[in-house]
Amino acid sequence: MIDVMFSVIKEGEGKEGEEEEKENFGKLEFTLDYNFTDNQLIVGILQAENLAAMDMGGTSDPYVKVYMLPDKKKKFETKVQRKNLCPVFNETFIFKIPYQELGGQTLVLQVFDFDRFGKHDVIGQISIPMNSVDLAQPLHEWRDLVGGEKEEVEKLGDICISLRYVPTAGKLTINIMEAKHLKAMDCGGLSDPFVKVVLQHQGKRLKKKKTTVKQNTLNPYFNESFSFEIPFGQIQKVQVLITVYDYDKLGSNDAIGKVWIGFGASGVGLRHWSDMLANPRRPVAQWHALCPEEEVDEALKKPLR
């Protein structure tokens, strides 16, 4: 009898332990609506509650990424809400998909914690197989987030840049040397890349320059130099923003990726700048991995010291 009672207690304790181990990632409020006239799936990201804290200070900088599987062709992102575990987004995104093709797709709503200095961590996600939703009427729901896999970072390519500063002349020379393994932006699997160099001082744009366009290549060779006059007293606060674009004759040029070097940068961008300052009058070359343009722009909005 004692043995039986003991086993029952042990079983109950095990269940409690399992419940305690169930992690809470928070929940997300969203809407779904389908416009049959225009073949549009309209996704509303309203707000989140009780998100997991991912930062050291016990908070997070959340944003939501919205995309369809399996193709992942079109991705949307909400704005980042700073230091907020119950953020309000109120943003709407539209996927143009014929109704007959929707059934085989899955909508993913993935909540990330924005990290200026590294990979963005997944807080949690919701996956909605479209064949499980009745789109005859709008859907408005709160759902619990579940643990999500880290999304593989898309490779945008690398760029080699040489920096040289002559303190006595107050002259900064930036040489755009070459790029490799750029993301293909054109239908034929190639791109027409060129590079834009923007010089900023304490966030204020000073000058910008552009390289020539290289046709039909993912591995362009530029070797183009640009010189700027920067007094020695200002060089510590200078930012160099380098964006690789795909030239488009008919529409707007698409950004392939961006690099931030100098004041406020981190990682390779800061180290390259420090190496240049430590070696006056000598050119210092360095390869940089391109980052998404919106990611760099978001990081630049943070106050710098």
Rank of each mutant, 00 (worst) to 15 (best):
D254P: 06
A289T: 15
R205L: 03
G251V: 03
N279H: 14
V238S: 05
E229M: 11
G233W: 07
L206R: 13
S252N: 12
K208R: 13
R282P: 00
S225R: 06
L206H: 07
Q200K: 12
K196P: 00
I235T: 03
R271D: 15
G264D: 09
H288C: 08
P231E: 09
V195W: 00
R281S: 14
Q202P: 00
G257V: 08
N253R: 03
K237C: 09
N219G: 03
L241R: 09
E224S: 04
S274A: 14
G257N: 09
E229V: 13
L277F: 08
A289V: 12
L270H: 07
H201G: 11
K204W: 05
D246K: 07
G269D: 04
L241I: 15
N216E: 12
F263Y: 15
V198S: 12
K196A: 12
N253V: 02
K196V: 12
L290R: 03
D248K: 10
A289C: 10
K249S: 13
K209D: 01
H272A: 08
Y245S: 08
T211P: 02
N253K: 04
R205K: 13
L277Y: 03
Q234D: 15
K258G: 01
Q234K: 14
I242P: 03
E229L: 11
K208Q: 15
R281L: 09
S227K: 05
I242E: 02
Q236G: 08
A265P: 07
W273N: 03
N219T: 14
F228A: 00
L270Y: 11
N253A: 10
F222W: 05
A255Y: 00
L199E: 07
V238Q: 05
N279M: 05
P220Q: 04
V284I: 15
I230Y: 05
Y245P: 06
I242Y: 02
G251H: 10
A255R: 07
D254Q: 13
E224T: 02
Y247S: 11
R282I: 11
R281E: 15
H288K: 00
K249M: 11
F232W: 06
Y247F: 15
I235H: 11
Q215H: 10
P231A: 07
N253L: 03
L241F: 02
L206V: 13
L218I: 11
A289L: 04
W273C: 05
D248E: 14
A278L: 13
H201V: 10
P280N: 10
D246Q: 05
K196F: 00
K237P: 01
N253S: 13
A278W: 06
F263W: 15
K210C: 02
A285L: 02
L277A: 01
K237S: 15
K210R: 12
T211L: 01
V284P: 00
A289F: 01
D248T: 08
Q215E: 12
V213H: 02
L270A: 14
T212F: 03
H272D: 09
Y247L: 07
H288E: 07
P231L: 03
K208F: 14
D248A: 08
P220R: 04
